[in-house]
Amino acid sequence: METMQQHSADRRSTYLAALTLEIERKLQKALISPRQRPELLQQLFADVALEVEDRARDMIFKKDEDKITSADDGIENHLCFYDVLADYFVGEPENGKHILDLIVQLWSQSFVSHIFALIFHKWLFEVSVENSEMLLRYGSALVQGATNVFWIDIQTNRKRFFPLFSYLLQEVALVPYRGNKISLQARRDLCLLLSRFLFFYNLDDLLEKFLGQFPGFPNAFLVGGPADIFVIELADQLQKLKVEPVLLHYLSRMSALKGLELRMTTSTRLKACLYSFTSPGGPMYPTRVVRHAAWDTLDLLFPVGQYPRHIISLFFRLLYPWYWPSSCWNFIMTCVRTVVFYILRIIGSSWENMRKSKDY
């Protein structure tokens, strides 16, 4: 048994060492080939973000050690190469030293911060780094790279980088001694980043704990406390979203904001953001389903004044005659569906009563 375990460990070590050498080779090639550099770095990023296939999985894990879990609550939690490499460089930090040196030489290039954030995010917080100047650079590169990869998930409506987000939130932002390894400015930027994507990755149940670990912000006396800063970042994020399913997902999770104590200026900012999604036309051009979701969220978070808001909105809709035909058509179809469903419920109820009377 011990011989088999040793053989499995050796095979895993050999495979990951070969993977490390391949990453080094591609980075070295990118360094000496300026013309091919963007393409090579993009390919390397795609490689480390790939999901681990069955053959590689057998080499990396024993059957009882398989880390792959099924999707939960819509989160794609499939094991990717970056997740394996991140653990590997924590256990064998010397093996990643040459890769780090190459990454530092390529800092200014596209996709380098992506690669660094994916494969060295655990190394940065779990391995001792004595050079404070490098820590400053690593912290800022981590935030930049994580921002870019999370936006890739937003654009594709995927959650491939959920393990990275989960680690940064639960193992860094909520664990002060780890967060203190990077500079105060990097910690602030990290909290702002997590605020923008918390709802997307369905971790809003940790919102209260997260707000309790916010670092101090120099402009807090102007913008307010952690809750205000979180909502401001969230409102800015909503304005940038262009993928309808993602926007609807954000709106569906915003019930978590109910009960937060916010400054009047923050509440007004959030209200204005949501209100911008309730009207057809520019600048947002929201679809009908988005408009209804925004109205539902607005009425849930700000129940006071909801009826005057709807009346004012209806008045402004009347000023744009070209919207009347679609509004009338949608109103008629809604009424028809309501009547049909009502009749079907009556028929179903009558049928059920007849069956019960026959049974007696």
Rank of each mutant, 00 (worst) to 15 (best):
A173H: 03
Y177L: 09
V129F: 06
Q109T: 05
R11I: 04
G259D: 04
I119E: 01
Q43T: 10
L198E: 00
L136E: 13
D236A: 11
A56V: 02
N77P: 04
E22A: 14
E208M: 09
R188V: 05
F221N: 11
L164V: 03
K356V: 11
Q239N: 10
A18E: 12
C80D: 00
P283K: 08
V84Y: 00
W322G: 06
R253P: 00
E24I: 11
Y167W: 12
V127P: 01
P215Q: 01
F89I: 02
Y201P: 00
V304Y: 10
E51F: 08
P38T: 06
V336A: 08
D236K: 14
A17G: 03
Y285A: 08
N131Y: 06
V143Q: 00
E39Y: 11
S132L: 07
M354R: 15
F165A: 00
Y285W: 13
D101Y: 09
H121I: 04
D189N: 13
R187N: 04
I99D: 03
T338C: 09
C335I: 11
W329A: 10
F221K: 10
A46D: 15
F197M: 10
D205M: 11
E171D: 15
S70Y: 12
S252C: 03
A235D: 04
F89D: 02
D66A: 07
H114E: 10
T20M: 03
S13I: 05
A272D: 15
D204C: 09
W324Y: 13
R269G: 06
R158E: 12
L106A: 03
N131S: 15
V84S: 00
L203A: 06
L106K: 02
D83A: 14
I32N: 11
R137N: 09
N202T: 08
T287G: 12
L203C: 12
D66L: 09
T297E: 02
L319M: 14
E244M: 01
I232S: 07
S166W: 04
L241C: 04
R55N: 12
L203W: 01
P163Y: 01
L135C: 07
F199V: 04
A294R: 00
V172H: 01
L257W: 05
N330F: 12
G139N: 04
P325R: 05
F210C: 07
K358W: 08
Q36A: 15
K358M: 13
F199T: 02
A18W: 01
S267E: 15
V340L: 13
F197P: 00
A220R: 09
N148H: 08
V48Q: 01
D54R: 13
N131W: 06
A86R: 02
L164Y: 02
S113W: 00
A256R: 05
S108K: 13
V243T: 12
S110A: 11
Q144R: 08
D359L: 14
T278C: 14
W107T: 07
A117Y: 01
